[in-house]
Write a protein that binds this DNA or RNA. Sequence first.
RNA 1: AAACAGGUUUGUUUCAUCGCUCUUUAUUUUUAAGGGAGGAAAGUCCGGGCAACGCAGGGUAAUUUGCCACUUGAAAAAGUGGGUAUAUUUUUAGGAAUAAAAAUAUAACAGAUAGUGUCACAGAAAACCAGGUAGCCAUUCGUCAGUUGGCGAAUGGUCAUAGUGAAAAUGUGAGGUAAGAGCUCACAUGUGUAAUUGGUAACAAUCACACAGGACAAACCUCUUAUGUUGUAAGGCCAUGUAAACCCUAAUUUUGCUGCGACUCGUGGCAAUAACCUUGGUUAUAUUAGGGAGGGUAGGCUGCAUAGAUAAAUGAUGGAAGUCGUUUGCCUGUUGGUAAACGAAACAGAACUCGGCUUAUAGAACCUGUUUUUAU
RNA 2: GGAAAUGUAGCAAAGAUGGUCAAUGCAGCGGACUGAAAAUCCGAUGAUGUAGGUUCGAGUCCUACCGUUUCCA
Length: 130
Amino acid sequence: MNFTFTKIERLCSKKAIDDLFANGKSKTQFPLKLIYKPTEFESAFPARAMFVVPKKKHKRANKRNAIKRKMREVYRLNKHTLYQSLQTQKIDIMFICLSNEELEYTVIEKSMLQLMETLVKVNFSETKNE
RNA sequence: AAACAGGUUUGUUUCAUCGCUCUUUAUUUUUAAGGGAGGAAAGUCCGGGCAACGCAGGGUAAUUUGCCACUUGAAAAAGUGGGUAUAUUUUUAGGAAUAAAAAUAUAACAGAUAGUGUCACAGAAAACCAGGUAGCCAUUCGUCAGUUGGCGAAUGGUCAUAGUGAAAAUGUGAGGUAAGAGCUCACAUGUGUAAUUGGUAACAAUCACACAGGACAAACCUCUUAUGUUGUAAGGCCAUGUAAACCCUAAUUUUGCUGCGACUCGUGGCAAUAACCUUGGUUAUAUUAGGGAGGGUAGGCUGCAUAGAUAAAUGAUGGAAGUCGUUUGCCUGUUGGUAAACGAAACAGAACUCGGCUUAUAGAACCUGUUUUUAU
RNA sequence: GGAAAUGUAGCAAAGAUGGUCAAUGCAGCGGACUGAAAAUCCGAUGAUGUAGGUUCGAGUCCUACCGUUUCCA
């Protein structure tokens, strides 16, 4: 099992991000919000992920950084279940922090795992319908 | 000793597991080695480096510096010492007002006698030369009294007194006068000019002459100091691309299709529009050069760093040590020492770079001040 | 990263050359009108972003912070 999280697995293209904001589907589980969209791209990994902490909620750069690092850490340790369920289907994922306060590691882990479960179910149903 | 306030310095260490980013090396998708955040990385308030554009010389405008000396510095600026002014405290002198000295703190500390402007309300007057329907004085007239006067009016003189205000035309005394007035004199205060002495200088002291000018320059301004403009989203290279496009000006030239020679050309044939009017001309359609306006592209490399990206790395979890706090136990040298448990660790995250300034900072160490308590 | 602008009641918005309680509208509050409401009328309350400085006196001038907004090819 591989716990790496290199730049290939991240969502870096501005066009893809704009498209995700415009056409993606969303699911909220406080304090996190998930936006996802099935797409096609060439990569060894089935998903591209990104993490957002808005400047309106957290003014100080070091607090934004700290929350993003924790979110990234949770995703890195738990992404393998998502990858297994996806198989050949490829999607873009974005997590947005909605809270005004600094978050504990366990709180992020709990809500992100719930969101991952819903994402797994949704994707399966879509692939079956298609 | 404690608490509080201010200032300076410092800004925890280490192990394991799983990771992130860059460089190098090998090799093919992974391995190895090494580097990886601050004192403010922040604010963007200053000054450089670097880059593009501009640049004969002089002036104007705009912005900017503002007591003196020395040291550091590329410059901004910082440090040390001194001068001056203001405020507070203490001491001394004095009946008092006040004066002198010392200490501490503060100062965007050139010029208000170059000029312009402003100074609400109140007040007679808010600024060269001023000043009344208060007061004081004189003269004239009226009236009462009856004789050195009172009351009222007019004209003139005056600013000591009272009052207003944040601020009132230098203060005290004497002379002088109808009453008064720097009107005159003496002393004091302040300003300017010149000289002398001390000091590197700012400046201080003395003396002579002239003068008495309120505040505001963080109002305009004057003097003085300095400045070309724009900032790495600069700039350079590559790719994409409307497009041999459109409009204007100038020059040249009929234009299109096609055959032959043949290739920035020559020659033959065929075809011919629209608009305007002066009816046989002009303009448009072509080429070249210069200019204008609008649109497209939204990517990469470089700039770029012995930290270094471009949705932006430097982390997460667990353990150990050290620091501090609380509670409990033990020791006794009792404002101390020691053990255990629990808790706390700030402000804050590089984006071209360097030097300053400003602001934010738990805990610790040191220094200064204030208050309280205890002991002597 | 760099460069600018701006801040006045809950909201909008004027004015002030440094000088007399800083207007006005909407909303909210109280009262009148009504059988009850709406509309209307009357009344009071409430503000110069924060902290210093200059000045006799700052909303205005200066400095430092805080917030908001805009621009760059």
